[in-house]
Amino acid sequence: MSMDAAEIEHLIREAIPDAQVRIEDLRGDGDHYAAYVTSQSFKGKSRVQQHQLVYQALKGAMGGQLHALALQTSVPEDS
């Protein structure tokens, strides 16, 4: 029951096309990742809403197939 970094990145990009995504494998076990996602679409949204966008992109994997994803979202500097 795990996901690989590329799969996570692909799902996020598919749902948030302009996203800059960086995934870190925290323990090398395919179950504990950190994801840093930057996107224009986060602008004006609360942290909860930003994170919900990413969770929706992961189509239900979060909390199931993917046990732990430390998430940090941000809006691009220049915006």
Binding site: R47, V48, H51, A70, L71, Q72
Partner: peptide
């Protein structure tokens, strides 16, 4: 009101 999970609580 829902504030967040562990990531958001830590950031805040």
């Amino acid at each position: 009101e829902f504030v967040g999970g562990s990531d958001i609580v830590r950031e805040m």
